[in-house]
Design a protein around this nucleic acid. Sequence first.
DNA 1: AGCACGCCGACT
DNA 2: GTCGGCGTGCTC
Length: 688
Amino acid sequence: MTSSIESTPIARVLIDSPLPQLDRLFDYRVPAALRDSAVPGVRVTVPLRAAGRQASGFLVDLVDEQSFEGVLSELSEVVSAARVLDPAVYRLIRRAADRAAGTASDLARLVVPGRQVRVEKSWLAAQAADSPTPSALPIAPPPTVAGYAPESLAPLFDPAAPSAERRVALTGIAQPVEVSGAWMPAAARTLAELAAAAVIRGRSAIVSVPDYRDIEHVAHALAGLLPADSIARVDAGQPTADRYRGFLRTLEHRPLAILGTRTAAAMPAHELGLIALWDDGDPLMAEQHAPGVHARDLALLRQEDAQCALVLAAHARSTEVQRLVEVGYLRAVAPAGARRRRILPTAQQLGGDGPASRARIPSSAWKAVREALESGPVLVQVARPGYAPRLACAGCGETARCRSCRGPLAQKRSGSPPACQWCGALAVDWSCPTCRSTRWRTVGRGSARTADELGRAFPGARIIVADGDTPVQAIESGRTLVVATRGAEPVAAGGYRAVLLLDGERMLARESLRVVEDCVRWWCSAAALAAPDAPVLLVGVGGAVATALATGEPERIAASELADRRALRFPPAVRVAALLGAPGVVAGALATVAELDGVDVLGPVEVDDERVRAIVRFDYARGAEVAERLKAALVTAATSRSPRMPGRPPRRRTVPLRVRFDDQEPFEDAAREPAGARPARASGRIEG
DNA sequence: AGCACGCCGACT
DNA sequence: GTCGGCGTGCTC
């Protein structure tokens, strides 16, 4: 704040509008009546263009001199005293928006939760009263980070250490642990310990995880390390009021452990000392709202601004993190003792023609499962939920489809009627449109069918199915076979005594740039739920991937994947921006960037009657220029009317231009399933 | 997005 | 002479 007493202060305001042409700061005079309440960070109302037309926004800064040469309007209103747009957060969203040709207000809407008047009032009242003395820290002995060499993590908590030492790619400990009565992946405990270590040193810490289950685990571990008033949860899963309450707490001037999902790295934080991100390769870490800034990029930008420590932790390294390790931006840290989790490829050879064979389990794996079941639960990972993921006509073999929407039919459980995977409609008296047959047969095996077959193969074992439809959080010890879709595996007390990864071949067959990465992540995450020394068996996968998994070196897979992408000039070796819009508009936008060095263009290709898609590829060094030019193209597209035909439509709605940076999707589309097929549900994770 | 400004056709 | 059509451009 630099307002002098004599001069009239000028408020610089970020207007809450998705229009790219309004994505800058607007100057307003502060009327005398608002002199005290108009402070940086507050929500304000301002006139825009015409008197009477009110826009809402955030007061970003107070300055002495206007930068706009013209007559200024006056601030209309200060909405509340809460300074919800923290200066560091504004710097972050400005940079993130610039990097992705997006608008700061789109990001502000994502990062600052909607106002809850009652919550805000009580918080402001509590702030005005003498703030209660924070609980004494620590309540427990100062936490160490278990399982890692102390010297490898010491630089994280030493602000004087070179910044390259303070950014770490951390490999998670691949086994479950018990923390005050609850079993969780060891990584959850590691994140909690890192956060607590920062808070106890007087610095705030942000922990960003993919989903709700991860939040629960880390929260549970944190509860044993820090007093409750040193922990703030900011995930979207909780009720709006709680979420806003948690958000407001991050504005307080005291060190906090801030725990949230993918936008957590954009939360305000007093004296930010550490950002820790779990599993950056999980699709949930990719923001879908415009401008689609990935949690990893948010964390990297925030680290740069705050000069804090950064931990990108995962079991399986993403190619993006691998790239940052290779260029020396991140320092790789693995658990002490270098105990690696080995995932053993198992020959496809099936044992005889018994029940295990029908359940497509090789004889060696069958033996391992049978032995493991004697001492505790066993995990079986499968690719698909339901009983039969696909149905086909018994007569001609054609895929059975929904009568109304043409979606593929599947069977949820044994004996249940076929249902459409798209619209959910039941196909009660189905008949084949090609050969008139009324009989169908199942194709493939989902979790329910695998469970049925395993139940027969292992009589006496309790069978539990865990998938997106029937989520299961935790498994007690006992003779239990857990059949789970990838991503939905529950944590077992004491760890699984064996983990069997089925359907590997099918998972790898998906046509996508990231298949290998995704599969390795799914397998490593499941493997990390095994008890130490329990066998982890991967069925039906060979080659270099299997070899690297067998030696416990999944980073080698990331390195070779990245090398492939370099050769092909695919992300993350380069950055990409996908353009979608009317042919003329896309061509115009491409023309502004095509000439730049280190930039090339794929397409445009037709998407539908009125739109084309093109992909701009560019070196990291060209990012700022490309984003700036594409942003200008967005402004042009938004402000110029479509050339109207002399004919009918009075005001033809123009096809908007869409620009999306660093999105994998266009590369996936290029080689996706048969035309008309919809993308499968992202994962079997629990929603909410 | 809205909304005002501005430059060419039919009206009292 | 003016009213009003909608293309054009701007928003502190």
